[in-house]
Simulated scan of single mutants.
Amino acid sequence: MNSLIWLPKNPTFQPGWDLEEIHATFFKCISWQMEETMDAINCPYHYVCDKTYPPNYHLSIDILVLLFTTISYFLTLFIVIMNIISRKGTIFFSLSKRFFLPSGPISLPLIILIFGKGNQINTIFPLSCIGPAILLLVLISALSFDNEADYKDIQYTFFAASTVSGILHASLYLDSIVLPYYTGFDALMSSTLSGECATCVCRKEALVVGGKLVKYKGWSMTTFFVVSVLCLRIICKIFGENVGKFVSMIKVLMERFSWILISLDCVYLIAKSPPEKVMLRVVAFGGIFLLILLHVLKEACSQICAMAYVVEKLRLVSMSTPIA
């Protein structure tokens, strides 16, 4: 993509400025300093990038993160498909659900570690672009695979609580990656270079953390609902049948609404994200959409099987009832 597209409107270039470097600095900036301005009409807000995060890690780190993410996704996809075509899971599937899924006790800590260092993983697999898709994968995994039958009360409570904690940490770390990225995107697209320095910009309105062009956040309503569903699952597991139909109904409604919010986040990120790494973004969110469609298919198959079971029982009852 032409670097000029990414520069602020009506730029004032100076000799020796590197367009690619300016572009990279805007997206890596973690602190924008507002300075005094003498032109209150044309430049009411003057900002300069005060601090950027450290240089990117070696390319090998990006490759390892890419491989880990790809394996996690295809493992999730494989188990989802097997759960659709087979009613009885094997021991392998059970162990996979517990340990190797994105929301499991092995993969989730690794994802948190990746997000914690995500500002420096930005060479061929930028987490500023793909991080939201990874978080959505974790949320889908947590919603889809409920291992309640595999645990006793205390074990399940510990497992679900650790998943909740992991999701919250992952969401906060993701925000530390995407908020500077979206702030830089806003500074690029809604500002004018003042010419004072390579990153000095004039704006008509104040620059806010995260910018105003992209509204996505890791810790959002979607994360809140998924975490709430997991907490309700803990309550239902502990109290069993004593929990009441109302709480069970609320849990089901929140699960369905969580899926709707995940779908909306996916659509929004495809439509509103900065036009960078477009093909990688399409592949990532296309994979998330596939998991969502498979979940819808699974729910539809379950409803059809339930209806068929009821119809068959009614038919058997009618056949066994003697005619007066």
Rank of each mutant, 00 (worst) to 15 (best):
M1I: 08
L7I: 09
P8F: 04
P8Q: 04
P11E: 12
F13Y: 12
G16N: 10
W17S: 10
W17R: 07
D18C: 07
H23C: 04
T25Y: 01
F27K: 08
K28Y: 03
D39A: 08
A40R: 12
P44I: 08
P44F: 11
Y45D: 03
H46V: 09
D50F: 01
K51S: 12
P54T: 04
H58G: 13
H58R: 09
L59A: 13
S60P: 00
L66K: 00
L67I: 07
Y73C: 13
L77R: 14
I81G: 15
S86N: 10
R87D: 10
K88A: 07
I91A: 13
S94N: 10
P105M: 08
I112A: 03
N119F: 00
Q120S: 14
Q120F: 01
I124Q: 05
P126A: 12
P126K: 14
S128G: 14
I130T: 11
G131R: 06
G131V: 06
A133I: 05
L135F: 10
V138Y: 02
A142G: 07
S144R: 13
S144I: 01
F145W: 08
F145T: 09
D150W: 09
T163H: 05
V164M: 05
S165P: 04
L168F: 00
L172R: 05
L174F: 04
S176F: 10
L179P: 01
D186G: 03
A187Y: 03
S191I: 00
S194A: 00
G195I: 00
E196T: 11
V201M: 00
R203E: 03
V208Y: 03
G210E: 02
K212H: 07
K212N: 11
L213K: 15
V214L: 02
K215T: 07
K217D: 08
S220Y: 09
S220T: 06
M221E: 13
F224E: 11
F224G: 11
V226E: 04
S228Y: 13
S228A: 03
L230G: 05
L230N: 08
C231P: 04
R233A: 04
R233E: 09
F239E: 00
F239T: 01
G240H: 06
E241D: 12
K251S: 01
R256Q: 02
S258C: 04
I262M: 00
L264H: 11
Y268M: 06
L269A: 06
A271D: 15
P275E: 15
P275K: 14
V278L: 14
M279E: 14
R281G: 15
A284I: 07
F285P: 15
L291R: 13
I292Y: 05
L294W: 04
H295P: 02
Q303P: 00
A306S: 03
L314C: 12
L316F: 04
V317G: 05
S320R: 13
T321A: 12
